[in-house]
Write a protein that binds this DNA or RNA. Structure first.
Lengths: 341, 341
DNA sequence: TGTTAGCACTCATGCTTATCGAGTGCTAAA
DNA sequence: TTTAGCACTCGATAAGCATGAGTGCTAACA
């Protein structure tokens, strides 16, 4: 275990490095007000901390830089609560004061603000609400061959899909089917739709033509699967970091971020609650020099989505964590109050 | 006016530079099979071409590089038809063979393929169909306070918006209103909706409560304005270009591309048909070292959207123009056949 | 008169060498 | 246990130099 003094020094080094982006020397530390030792003493401790794996030296005559293990210790044990500025809090409050927005829009704004506040890349996922309950189904024929199928959930989410109509089906028949579907399936959770579709309707079905069967299949395929949505903001912020002045490094990261399905791997595979993944701890090579902090937000106590920040390992952990917590809490409150009626 | 030989040499230089990204020397040109002159002769011509403003010299003892004026002449007069490879044509055909897709999805795929084929950044706009005619309006109440308003157009586009309900309005009343709206407004072009809403309905209105007025206002505000959609793919491709190995240059460009409203300025302000905007000819500083090629695609002969490519000034103009033409034509055909029924 | 060979000149690039200084590790004294 | 002192390391920066691609100019040639 690290001694108090070692922790103090480690803390000072990480703090310093986070703000300077330069390897930290012993003298820099000994000059700090909160440290009362000479540079020689610090040097000895630093040497020990390096041996223990908390620090690294880019080369012999350079200062020290925190290792992944060092950051990990910092995040787990040393981090101090960060106070947000008035202006920052204001922005958050403003976001949560918005009304008349779809959940998706809220989430989109969230990403925007998150990125603005932290100056890092924001990734926001969801909300993936398994409890979406069917509020209304509608089929609008466009012409003899095509129609738009629309599903509205109790949360106000609207999904739509273009479908090919079976040949020779009339407007009246479609209307009858839609009425039937609405009567039988309203308030059914979307994830149950598939089985209920056949359970409830099959009895009635026999009295109708096989054309219904056709349409049901289409509905089944197209509307029971909700697409997950990822919002990405401030992807270019990473280029502000001095350690990413290299086009090749940046390219790998931005290419990763461009693929939204990959983003799910980056942010989605984390547990609920606050998670910090530092440097090497990341699976994907492209972001082994980055840290990712995520947390989940919830609806009625149940986690439904994620907010996350991607930045350099040399990230302002304290601030980001505070912002994320605020945001997730506010989002949860907002969603819950809006949809739990 | 440039002599035939000058044109030949300019063509050779641009060609060479496009593929090598290095300033082109007189010897390189004189060695080409299609040029039968010594390097000294070429040197003289190059000197003249520079004086005329078609070429530039990075420094005294370097080769020549085309100026904006040089590229312009190349594009306007020298460019030779480019033949697409079998595989490339295949990808395009495959795209146009897709069925049962919303126009937006087609456009999204288009951007994807465009970027893949050219290895540059693809920007696709639209389709902005002013002729969208109303097919169906629906209002689905979620609870006592909120509802989702949905508009379906004859092209299968679905727009939706969350609205606050006036206090004390009942489900029956909403249904009556919706029926009225559908009866009166079906087949009205969206852009006329605003005026027709009041024209047609005002007579009926007087018989109903002012709550209708409230809802009409909401519909008016929220649904008559269609949002334009920009699709961006392959933004990171610019980093493959040797002249963009500099993080600061890249940053400016990517930051611009991140703002979708700015993209409209980049791609939208062009005329119909094929447009090439080279380097300095661009308004925005961030892309003064880039070229943008755009063309419009149409529905029933009327331009409704744009496809464009953003790359370095040193762009493969011939190939990009060919691909864009193919694509715009195919898209137009596809849209027209799908929606002009 | 147009073309080309020849040659001196320019200048970015890459390599080597020297200098500088931040920072270290070790030793010995306090 | 702490710290002052000192030799040492090594990246960063600058200076000097050679190289070579490419030019412009001149003079000879067809």
């Amino acid at each position: 275990m690290l001694s108090d003094r070692q922790q103090m020094i480690l803390n000072a080094i990480v703090d310093n490095y986070i703000h300077s982006a330069e390897p930290v020397g012993s003298r820099t530390i000994s000059k700090r007000d909160d440290i009362g030792f000479s540079s020689a003493t610090i040097r000895n401790e630093m040497s020990d901390l390096e041996e223990l794996g908390y620090l690294e030296q880019p080369h012999t005559s350079a200062g020290r830089v925190p290792s992944t293990k060092g950051y990990r210790f910092y995040v787990d044990n040393l981090i101090q609560p960060h106070l947000l500025e008035e202006a920052e809090l204001g922005k958050l409050k403003q976001l949560f004061a918005e009304r008349i927005l779809h959940a998706e829009q809220v989430v989109e704004y969230t990403a925007q603000i998150l990125s603005q506040l932290t100056n890092y890349t924001a990734i926001v996922l969801g909300p993936e609400i398994f409890e979406h309950r069917l509020k209304h189904i509608q089929i609008v024929p466009l012409n003899a061959e095509q129609a738009v199928a629309i599903v509205v959930t109790h949360t106000g989410r609207v999904e739509n899909k273009l479908i090919d109509l079976p040949e020779g089906i009339g407007a009246g028949e479609i209307e009858r089917l839609v009425n039937l579907l609405n009567a039988k399936l309203t308030d059914v959770p979307l994830w149950q739709l598939r089985q209920r579709l056949y359970q409830e309707i099959s009895g009635e079905m026999q009295r109708h033509t096989e054309q219904y069967e056709e349409i049901l299949k289409l509905l089944n395929n197209s509307l029971t699967q909700e697409e997950e949505r990822v919002y990405l903001r401030g992807a270019t912020k990473i280029m502000n970091q001095p350690e990413f002045r290299d086009v090749d490094k940046v390219k790998d990261i931005l290419e990763l971020l461009e693929q939204h399905d990959q983003l799910m791997n980056v942010i989605g595979m984390q547990g609920d609650g606050l998670t910090v993944r530092i440097g090497q701890e990341n699976q994907l090579d492209a972001i082994k020099q980055c840290s990712i902090i995520t947390t989940s937000y919830s609806l009625g106590g149940k986690p439904v989505g994620m907010v996350g920040i991607l930045g350099p390992t040399r990230m302002e952990y304290g601030k980001v964590i505070t912002v994320l917590n605020h945001l997730a809490e506010g989002l949860s409150r907002m969603l819950t109050s809006q949809f739990e009626k």
